[in-house]
Write a protein that binds this DNA or RNA. Structure first.
Length: 231
DNA sequence: GCGACAG
DNA sequence: ATCTTGTCGC
């Protein structure tokens, strides 16, 4: 698991591993029919101290109430390289994941993370890496575009426009609330674009960003603040 | 070669 | 990611 990451320390190693793991991605299969629980992932950074903190939250339908969570703080082990974000964020996220699993009666039905899935230069963004690693359905929801072209979706909640890369739809610009800026989502693993849009809308009953993202963001920041006191 | 570039 | 107050608007 993480031992596999221990050997990845250069851009070359990371890209080689991506090329290997991308073949495992299932990006056009039926998504979860029901979602009783959903997990959210996010990482916060302190640029001064090199500290980072990952957080995993588990929310329960239909109100998306927090039922479990875990965090993991540590030092940055990989630089930010566009296209290799997962090698930077996965270590703390997987550590938090391992800590949250024992709190659950069953694995979450869906995982949502910050950043893209297959809307990625090599079709293997953070959401894909997380998905194939834990073997569960994942969706990537990003606040800004990364690759591909898309037109502006209509102004109302639920309207969307495909993100086109290399002639294929790799994701969608989705309006999650009337009049707010769109989010950019793509399949990570074991689901499809329609299902992903459906569940992301469900996770955005009130705000632009999914409840999973909002809650995980808060928790990761709190965990980072806690970790800074230790330094 | 130049500019862009999730978090 | 992160640095950051007030302010316009529903």
């Amino acid at each position: 698991m993480s031992s596999r990451h221990a050997s990845v320390e250069t851009v070359e190693d990371a890209e080689a591993l991506q090329a290997e793991l991308r073949r495992l991605v299932e990006a056009d299969v039926p998504g979860p029919e029901q979602v009783a629980t959903v997990a959210g992932f996010d990482v916060a950074y302190d640029t001064d101290t090199d500290l980072l903190a990952g957080a995993v939250v588990v929310l329960a339908a239909p109100r998306w109430e927090l039922i479990a969570s875990a965090t993991a703080a540590g030092r940055v082990t990989f630089p930010y390289v566009p296209g290799l974000l997962s090698f930077r964020e996965l270590p703390p996220l997987l550590e938090a994941w391992e800590a949250v699993l024992p709190q659950l009666a069953a694995p979450p039905d869906l995982l949502v993370c910050d950043g893209h899935g297959i809307a990625h230069p090599r079709r293997f963004g953070l959401a894909c890496h997380l998905g194939v690693t834990v073997g569960l359905p994942t969706i990537g929801v990003a606040k800004t575009p990364f690759v591909g072209e898309h037109s502006a979706p209509g102004p109302h909640r639920g309207e969307r426009a495909p993100i086109i890369l290399g002639g294929e739809a790799v994701g969608a610009a989705l309006r999650t609330q009337d009049g707010v800026r769109e989010v950019y989502l793509s399949v990570g693993h074991r689901t499809n674009l329609d299902s992903a849009c459906r569940w992301v809308l469900d996770l955005c009953p009130r705000y632009r960003l999914p409840e999973t993202t909002r809650t995980a963001d808060q928790l990761s920041r709190a965990a980072l603040a806690e970790a800074r006191l230790t330094v």
